[in-house]
């Protein structure tokens, strides 16, 4: 048997007039349809099994006292949600998570954009080198980064106090602990934004910038009036992916502070982990996870709407 790779052209529909069919002729390869269907079934099946089913189970579980270790799965109605929403611990974690996300996203976008513009500049030589340098922390495992930063933050032996001549207890001072985690996260992640903004800068039409120059626009004006608005879709993408990512920030908290001192750095994901995998109260943890899911979805929707509104106003 020989395998033909020549495309097969489907026939015109029965009754149709040859030559004037409004339908586009579909070209397929042998086995293409089977391959497509197989891939769809595998992807859809995986999604159902690995995503939809656990989410559904967690949703149902959030209305139960659920401890998988002793098999407890007792219906408690809205008790987990009412306990959660009346808990200062939960609200403290939510507020901290919101603050953490807002600051880290701001710096990620601002630093990412500034450095991308600097690298993109025609005055900059060794662009590949800088791209690599700034992207390197992004591909380094977060756990390893967190352990190194933990050593750097040591008040007596750490590099930060030593080089800056300071005497600060970075991870144990309640005023400094969360900003210290933020700083590490920004350092780790801003390189990702640099790469995305660099890609966006390549798509900014050169002639628009040249025309603005001819009209007497300076570098700042060209950036704010032309480059930045045209980068809006990329900015929105960075912001939305960052919202989703930072509302779930966990590893850095686990390694650096375990939520302490007290609860000074307890973000919502750490609270969920503590309830689920330390105290095995899966019902409460599921309720918290669902509240987080709703908040994440709402914030993502708002960001998306704002970007669409801005796009329409620019086009209008």
């Amino acid at each position: 048997m020989t395998l033909s790779l020549r495309p097969r052209v489907s026939k015109a529909p029965p009754g149709g007039t040859p030559g004037i069919s409004t339908r586009r002729r579909v070209r397929t390869y042998p086995g293409e349809r089977a391959l497509r269907n197989t891939v769809i079934i595998i992807v859809a099946g995986s999604l159902l099994l690995l995503t939809a089913y656990p989410i559904g189970l967690a949703f149902v579980g959030s209305f139960h006292y659920w401890n998988p270790l002793n098999g407890a799965f007792d219906f408690v109605g809205l008790e987990n949600y009412t306990t959660l929403l009346s808990s200062p611990d939960f609200w403290g974690s939510m507020i901290r998570t919101g603050f953490f996300s807002a600051v880290v996203i701001f710096f990620r976008v601002a630093l990412g954009l500034a450095i991308a513009v600097a690298i993109f500049s025609q005055l900059t030589r060794g662009k590949a080198f800088f791209r690599t340098i700034f992207y390197m922390p992004t591909v380094t495992p977060l756990v390893a980064v967190a352990y190194v930063w933990q050593m750097m933050y040591n008040p007596q032996t750490g590099a930060i106090n030593t080089f800056l001549g300071l005497d600060l207890n970075w991870l144990y001072d309640p005023q400094l602990a969360l900003p210290s985690i933020m700083a590490m996260t920004i350092w780790k992640d801003f390189g990702y934004a640099v790469i995305l903004f660099l890609a966006g800068l390549h798509s900014v039409p050169e002639d628009a910038l040249e025309a603005a120059s001819v009209d007497g626009a300076g570098a700042w004006q060209r950036f704010w009036r032309i480059t930045f608005p045209l980068l809006a879709p990329m900015t929105v993408f960075v912001v939305i992916t960052s919202i989703i990512s930072y509302l779930q920030a966990f590893v850095q908290v686990l390694v650096l502070t375990k939520g302490g001192p007290g609860t000074a750095t307890q973000l919502i994901s750490y609270l969920i982990y503590d309830k689920a995998f330390v105290k095995y109260d899966f019902g409460y943890a599921s309720a918290a996870a669902f509240v987080l899911l709703i908040v994440t979805a709402l914030l993502t929707l708002i960001s998306f709407r704002l970007s669409v509104g801005r796009k329409n106003s620019l086009e209008g």
Binding site: Y172, G260, P261, G262, T263, A264, V278, K279
Partner: peptide
């Protein structure tokens, strides 16, 4: 484990917070 985790949190709250 709640004995150790809750006592630790209490001490941290007093000492640092």
């Amino acid at each position: 484990a709640t004995f150790e985790t809750s006592i630790t949190k209490a001490w941290q709250d007093v000492i640092y917070n």
